[in-house]
Design a protein around this nucleic acid. Structure first.
Lengths: 118, 118
DNA sequence: TCCTTAGTTCAAAAGTTATTGAACAATTGG
DNA sequence: CCAATTGTTCAATAACTTTTGAACTAAGGA
């Protein structure tokens, strides 16, 4: 029940760039970066598209090596593969995230934060 | 006889990333970076595809704001828009070029250097 | 067990991008 | 003017990508 991920040395520059060249996926990466450390499940991104469509985009990100998906019960916990990307393409992720942070044209992941239920 | 270019603030992150997510275009950018300052005409890239196909890829790069094409006689002199890209997306181009420099999977622009004819 | 929640898979449709060749335009040199 | 050089445009096709809905799987809770 583990999903396929490329290992670090298999991550390809054109594939990563191509995958990030999509507003939906860039919005996902931007949101993941803003919540770094916190593992988020897929339904967090439902603002960005249908369940099916997100499954598609999240698979693209995972197959490119940009994210990692860990199966936890019926959930897939999604994290950015920051260390791997930094090792393979130093500075790339940082500059992409910094640029994406200011990009008003990107769709936003809404703020239905459940956190702090105490 | 000037070709259309976006101005700096019109350059879009997802479009730039998408355009760079293609091995042919990444190879063009890598080569331009390696010859920075030297304006190169389109036929420099003929190793990477047919004349028509290069016209297509070079137009994509230009329309995305990655390159500038200046008309000089029957030539289009192509340069990287490094200052504009650095202003808009600090660090992005550097990290892409550094990563592309080591990428053996990218096609190469051959070495038919004419230079130093003196 | 049955129901719900979370997400995937499949096939179809729609849309986009890449590649090709033939025809075209513009400039330069003879 | 004529021919060569440089690159574009156009239309066709091929190849991919995105989006959709319906059907499905797998785990967890009542």
């Amino acid at each position: 029940m583990t999903l396929p991920h490329p290992n670090t040395d298999q991550i390809s520059l054109p594939i990563v760039l191509g995958v990030l060249g999509d507003p939906t996926r860039l919005a996902i990466v931007r949101y993941l970066a803003s919540k770094e450390g916190v593992p988020l499940n897929c339904s967090r991104f439902l603002d960005l598209g249908s369940k099916t469509n997100l499954s598609y985009h999240l698979a693209k990100l995972r197959e490119a090596g940009v994210t990692r998906a860990e199966v936890v019960g019926t959930n897939r916990m999604i994290t950015l593969r920051r260390a791997d990307l930094d090792a393979r393409f130093p500075g790339l992720l940082d500059s992409v995230i910094a640029a994406a942070a200011d990009d008003a044209a990107l769709p936003a992941v809404g703020g239905h934060d459940i956190e702090a239920s105490a």
